[in-house]
């Protein structure tokens, strides 16, 4: 089996691992690094449960080889808190009951943060459109949309 060495920064920590070449970024995160907050919900690159930020952009970590992330800065759901405080987007999700089973939640929060980086004050239609790559089966998105608007506001202030 063909192995490669990869090195990257994950949630602010330098990591380097030797993995089979066919290792996906999500497998590196979950299986090698124990960062199980990033989930896998589909195999067609659609559901978004695996979304993480790579160099500041939301990507599907199930559709990226670990090798492609060599040298990158990766931020996962585990890296969002600071000083034990929830990120404003995490806090908004809690306040607005934007999660039920919690499985899609990490990917949702990552996408929301990515959206706000592109649009600091997104309206409802923009939010709904930007969630095209994130499936939730529990909430009907109603509260997720509200939470993202509130989280964006909190991130502005």
């Amino acid at each position: 089996m063909s192995s490669i060495s990869v090195a990257m920064t994950v949630n602010g920590t330098r990591v380097s691992e030797s993995v089979p070449a066919r290792t996906l970024l999500v497998q590196l995160l979950r299986e090698q690094l124990g960062l199980t907050g990033t989930h896998v919900g589909c195999d067609t690159s659609q559901c978004g449960a695996c979304n993480v930020l790579v160099n500041g952009r939301a990507v599907k970590s199930c559709t990226m080889l670990a090798a492609q992330a060599d040298g990158a800065e990766v931020l996962t759901i585990e890296g969002l808190e600071s000083d034990g405080q929830l990120h404003p987007m995490q806090a908004a999700f809690k306040e607005h009951h934007a999660l039920q089973c919690g499985f899609c939640t990490p990917g949702m929060v990552i996408t929301a943060i990515d959206l706000v980086a592109n649009d600091a004050n997104p309206g409802e239609a923009t939010i709904r459109k930007y969630l095209e790559g994130n499936f939730c089966r529990c909430t009907g998105y109603h509260n997720i949309v509200k939470a993202i608007a509130a989280g964006a506001e909190a991130m502005r202030s």
């Binding site: 199980t36 907050g37 996962t76 585990e78 969002l80 929830l86 995490q90 999660l99 939640t105």
Partner: peptide, 9 residues
């Protein structure tokens, strides 16, 4: 929610 929002579920 705290555990799900922080990846600790």
């Amino acid at each position: 929610d705290d555990r799900f929002l922080t990846g600790r579920g």
